[in-house]
Amino acid sequence: MSDLLTFGLLAFTSFFTLINPLGTMPIFMTMTAELDNEHRTRTAKKASIAAFITIVIFAFSGQVLFNFFGISVNSFRIVGGVIFFLMGMDMLQARLGKVKVKESEVHSYINDISITPLAIPMICGPGALTNAIVLMEDAESLEKKMVLVLSILIVMILTYLILFSSSKIIKVLGETGNNVMMRLMGLIVMVIAVEFFFSGLKPIVAEMMN
């Protein structure tokens, strides 16, 4: 029992740290600023569900998929870094906040952003997917596999609740506050992107040199 508890705690803390819903929240706030509360809540729910399904699929079959397509985790990090950097650039210039969504296009807009970039790669990025693959390999018993899936589910529920609460934060900050936060977070996202990019590039260059 203590072994399962330790494994579950490891899974929960590692996924919560890697997914970092608090870091995703400002981007979510920016991209859904033009939506009402109902549609913003629906976007958060769809993004959380999509991220949960993606992580679970990768946990059970990620290593097989990576090997089949010849994809390395480092390549995944480089692509994630590029996506983050472009997103951070838009945030820094307040371009994401200028998105105006027509009433007739709200449904398709929610479907678009809830999958990409919110679910992938913001919520379940290279780190979370790699963590899922590694922990699933360590889960040698059925009980541990169930604990792992339950840990992912709990983190996704917390992620949804944090994104859901962003509606109140948007009201408190107002338009000026949102623009200031968007620019600050854009800078931080670009720094994270550079870290992602080079953390994937270094092993590849080292392997080429050897």
Rank of each mutant, 00 (worst) to 15 (best):
A59G: 07
F60V: 00
T54N: 07
G70K: 04
I53V: 12
F52D: 01
M91Y: 08
T54S: 15
I57G: 08
D90V: 00
I49M: 12
M89P: 02
V101C: 05
D90G: 07
F52S: 02
D90C: 01
F69Q: 04
M89K: 11
F84G: 08
L92H: 09
L96W: 14
F66Y: 12
G81Q: 08
G62Q: 05
R77P: 03
N74H: 09
K45T: 05
V64P: 01
V82Y: 14
F58C: 02
F84A: 13
V73G: 10
F60E: 00
I78N: 13
V64D: 07
K46P: 00
S48L: 06
G62S: 03
R77H: 13
V73I: 13
V79D: 10
A47F: 12
D90Q: 10
F66R: 05
Q63I: 01
I78M: 15
S48K: 02
I49T: 07
T54Y: 14
S75L: 11
G70Q: 06
L92N: 11
A50I: 03
G70A: 02
F60W: 10
K46C: 01
D90A: 07
V99C: 06
M89L: 14
G81K: 04
S48I: 00
L86M: 12
V73N: 11
F68A: 10
I57H: 03
I78L: 13
F52N: 01
F68K: 00
F66Q: 06
I49E: 11
I83Q: 10
F69A: 04
A47Q: 08
N67K: 10
K45I: 08
A44R: 10
S61K: 11
N67S: 14
G81A: 08
S72E: 12
A47P: 04
G80N: 12
S72P: 02
F69V: 01
I71F: 15
K46Q: 07
Q93M: 12
V79C: 14
M87N: 06
G88P: 06
Q93L: 10
V73R: 11
V56Q: 03
V56Y: 05
K98D: 13
N67G: 12
F66W: 05
I57Y: 06
I57C: 13
V82G: 08
K100H: 13
R95F: 05
V82C: 12
F76L: 15
